[in-house]
Each structure stands twice: as C-alpha cells, then as structure tokens.
Design a protein around this nucleic acid. Structure first.
Length: 491
RNA sequence: GUCUCCAUCGUCUAGGGGUUAGGACACCGGGUUUUCAUCCCGGCAACGGGGGUUCGAUUCCCCCUGGAGAUGCCA
C-alpha cells in the first residue's frame, strides 16, 4: 500500500517551529516513499479559530516550498476542512451511540469543575470525569436530548483490560484502560467533534497510512486505538516525533524567543536555512553530513534515523546555517531578497533608480560575506545612500592617540584622495601605507579615522571599495566634515 | 499526585559488547586581514548513578535519579 501521510494543523495561531517540523517530516516521508502528502485543516475549535492563522499556514508552506498533493481544493478524499465535514462526524457519532460504544452526557461544566475540585482536595487516585452519565438509559437520554437539553457525547472507555499501540520509533506503548482518560468527550455541546473523533474518522476515511505527529500525542495514542476499535477499523501506523524544547528544557514557546515562522521570515532568515536546521531536530543522516536542501531531504529522509529524545532548539546554530546559506545564494537571487528590504527601510526608492542599483551591485559582493540575516543589509549599506547625520568623534580616535592629532591624519587622507579612482586598490594601499610610515603611525591608525569619516562607524565593508562606491567627492566632503567637527570639539 | 515516554560533550547528534567515543554549533586560542566578518588551523568538552549479564559494558536487562509530556466540551 502506498504511503499517505498528512499534516493536520489547527488554525488557532501562527505556524511555529514545532508544527512546521512535523509538516516537513511528513512531507519528506511522503516524497521519499513516493507517497502522498495531505493537508487537512482541523478547525473544530470554533472559539479559537481565526482567518489570519489559516492565511499564515498557507503563506508559510509556500515560503518553504512545500506543496500538498491533496488538501483544500485538491484531491478526491475531501473536503479537507473539518468544519465542512460536520455531517460525516455526526453520522459516525450516531453509529457509536447506536452500537452502545458512546453515550450522551448531560453534566454541566460546573458539575465537572466541582468533581475535579473534589478529586484534588481528596487527592483521589481517580482523575477526570466520574462517568456519571455512562449508565443512563439510552432511550431516556435521547428523549432529554431531543427536548433540547444541552449535552455532549462521550466514548465508553473499557473499564478494564489494556490497550497497546505500536510506534515506529518508540516500539510498543501500553496503557491500562483504567488509566486512559475516563470517557472523553467526542462531540461537544455545539455539535462539533473534538479532535480525537474528527482526527480518527478523517485519518481512516482519507486512507492515512502513517500518523506522524509530536510526542505530546503519545498519551492519547491508546484512546485513538480504542476509537478505531469501536468503529471496527484498523489503526494506521504511528510515529511520534521527539519534542522541540527551549533552552530551559520545556516545550519551545514564545518565551524562549521567536518561534513563529513569520517572525523568522521577517527577521531575515532564509527558508532553506530553516528547513535544513529544523530537519536536524530529531533526525540525522550520518555521522558528518549536515547540509541538506529540500530536494535532498525529499530523497534521503528515513524513519529509521529519527531520534527518540527531545531536542533543544539552538538559535545560534540556526543563525550559522543562515549565514552559510546567504553566502551560498547567487548574487541575483540574493539581490531579489535584499532590494525589498532596502525599500522598506527607506534606503532606496521604489522603484529603485539606476544609480541606486549600480551602488547596490557594487556593494553586494562586499556585504554577502558579512551578513547573518538578510535584514542586516540596510545598516551595512546605509552610508552609501544617506548622509551621515553626525559623527561620534570618539570612534575616530585610534588607540594610543590624542583626539587633537586626528585632523592631521584626516588631512593626509584627504590629500591622498587625489587621483584615488585612477589607481588600483593595491596602489592606494601602498600609498596609505607610505603615508602612515611618514607620519610614524600604523596602517590601522590612519585607516580608522578615515573609515569613520566615510562610513560613520568603526565597522564597515572594505574601505577602499566603499570609497569607490560612494564616490571620491563625497568621501572627501565627509573627511572635511569630520575633521571640522573634531577641531571644534578640541578647540 | 497519577500515567506514559526519554537519557552520549553546554547544544544538535554519530556510534555501538573490545573505538584515541566521531562530526557540527557555541566557546577559547592561532593564522589571513585596513575595521567587522568570511576563510583556514588548533584546543576545551560527553557515555547520570547503582546493580546485574559477560572474558569484557557507554552499548543488553533491572532499579534509582533526573528531565519531559499528558492528565480539557484545545488541538
């Protein structure tokens, strides 16, 4: 039987690292097996549902380059949106009712709270629902329901025995039925199914062969198997993925830093870096290789190399990957990414002028080696497009020197700008070197004030290229400006 | 509390009855260099503890400890 897997997010928030890792692994598994990857929207929680989350899901998958074989608007097992499958769940819930596998429950939330409270106070061994309505007469219950009394439907979990399911990574996992959530709600008061019911029905109806989801679902594994058994269905294979944790060892969440893919996208991360790094969370290929494109993973992914232990999300390593991938990009594709950022930050106009583009093309090779995030671009090239508001003169002061001595150095630099553009960088370097010797100072001591004058900061792309890109006239004017400011301050 | 799962450098991991326990990030040194980066070289650093099994356990088994997850009319 060919592999059919699904990613089934709930549109109640932004797509985050954990969810996307699950999506990726399902997708890679499907591709590597020549199977189908299905996207299903689990929007049964009408309270928390929101459109923005749905849009974010689509945006994220597109950004990562993940395409689904079946999903909303595509495929023969639809609809793929649970809110559009309302009647299906109702039908199957009624079947369970008819077979005596489920029952109506009229307990109010207040009563449930009281029960829980009581259990807590008494340190009771029994947790959860007390099965108050389990033995109601079905005919009587139906009458109450039809008279309009609010109710839910609960699954009759066997009182004894145990349930085992096999996990492809973890092996057999067994749980006593008495330890399973006592008669969980499968249909809510609003008539919508809960996750457990909808999920099981859909996975069965859609012919899902492998359920790959995070380990946080392990505890409900036996419950799902019980549900399959109640329907008389064969459960699919299970594969529980290790959790992604924050630095402190608890499940990764917002307080650990950025977790939504949108934040990463806006923060200057590349999709290929994210894909590569995330894939290494709980999965590995061999003892040394760690660079993988999405296409590589579509071929190389295997269940066997999945790990059991949770993985801590390391922002530093992701950053490193990001830098690596920025350097790997072709200048053209990087440019495509960078120009919109420069426009957004108001560095260049929209559309950019030819002059702006020329400067950018010259600067790109200089900054590509230096960027960690695409969003670094604006600060790196700002001095090429905008005038320097004011100098921090202390920056221009080289080690072991008096500020009052700096204008003389700047003066020397100014004079060397004569004919600068006609000379090669090597020749210019020689000239500056000679000048430094003449002044009895080090190369760095002459270049630092010059760098600050031209770029406004102590840290910049290579100086001579920067002067070339900026234009010698502008560079000269900035040298004068800084010199004057220092003279004023030291007067 | 109860149930379930997990356990190799700080982090991601490879490995597996006999290895100098390998790689990567981070960190620390050094080199290249006009700054910052990049790049190159080097270093630090791990099998949680106790019992077994065995000629031999980091590897297999048990216990402990530690961590996590679940215990919802959320998924």
């Amino acid at each position: 039987m060919s592999v059919r897997v699904r990613y089934a997010p709930s549109p109640t928030g932004l797509q985050h690292i954990g969810g996307v890792r699950t999506a990726l692994f399902n997708y890679f598994f499907a591709r590597s097996q020549g199977g189908k990857f299905i996207l299903r929207i689990e929007d049964t929680d009408r309270e928390r549902y929101n459109d923005e989350s749905l849009q974010d899901l689509y945006d994220t998958l597109e950004w990562l380059g993940i395409q689904w074989d079946e999903g909303p608007g595509k495929g023969d097992f639809g609809p793929y949106v649970q809110s559009q499958r309302f009647d299906i769940y109702q039908e199957y819930a009624e079947k369970l009712l008819k077979d005596g596998k489920a029952y109506y429950c009229f307990c109010t939330p207040e009563r449930l709270d009281a029960v829980r409270e009581e259990q807590k106070k008494n340190k009771s061994k029994i947790q959860g629902y007390d099965r108050h309505c389990r033995d109601l007469d079905p005919a009587e219950a139906l009458k109450r329901k039809e008279s309009g009394e609010p109710c839910v439907i609960r699954l009759k979990v066997p009182l004894d025995g145990k349930t085992t399911f096999h996990d492809e990574i973890m092996g057999d996992i067994t749980r006593k039925n008495s330890d399973v959530n006592p008669d969980p709600v499968i249909v809510k008061t609003d008539g919508f199914p809960t996750y457990h019911l909808a999920n099981v029905i859909d996975d069965h109806l859609m012919g899902i062969t492998h359920i790959m989801r995070a380990q946080e679902w392990i505890p409900s594994g036996p419950l799902h198997v019980l549900l399959y058994q109640a329907f008389g269905w064969e459960p699919p294979k299970y594969c529980h993925l290790p959790l992604v944790m924050g630095k402190d060892g608890s499940k990764l969440s917002k307080r650990h830093g950025a977790t939504s893919l949108r934040d990463f996208r806006l923060g200057g991360y590349l999709p290929e870096a994210i894909t590569n790094y995330i894939s290494l969370l709980g999965w590995s290929y061999d003892d040394s290789r760690e660079f993988f494109t999405r296409e590589d993973l579509e071929k190389l992914f295997t269940l066997e190399k999945l790990n059991k232990a949770p993985a801590v999300f390391d922002y530093k390593k992701l950053e490193w990957f990001n830098g690596q991938y920025i350097r790997q990009r072709s200048p053209e594709s990087l440019k495509e990414l960078l120009l919109p950022i420069l426009q957004k930050d108001g560095i260049i106009s929209n559309p950019p002028t030819q002059r702006e583009l020329n400067i950018f093309d010259g600067a790109l090779p200089l900054i590509q080696e230096r960027m960690k995030f695409t969003t670094d671009v604006s600060e790196m090239v700002r001095f090429l497009y905008q005038e320097i508001e004011s100098y921090t003169t202390a920056d221009a002061l080289p080690k072991k020197m008096e500020l009052a001595a700096v204008p003389a150095i700047l003066e020397a630099c100014y004079s060397l700008l004569e004919g600068f553009e006609q000379r090669s960088d090597e020749e210019n370097e020689q000239l500056f070197y000679n000048k430094a010797e003449e002044l009895g100072i080090k190369m760095g001591q002459i270049l630092q004030p010059l760098r600050v004058a031209v770029t406004g900061t102590r840290i910049s792309p290579p100086l001579f290229e920067s002067i070339r890109l900026l234009g010698v006239d502008k560079a000269a004017a900035r040298i004068k400006a800084l010199s004057e400011q220092i003279q004023k301050e030291t007067a």
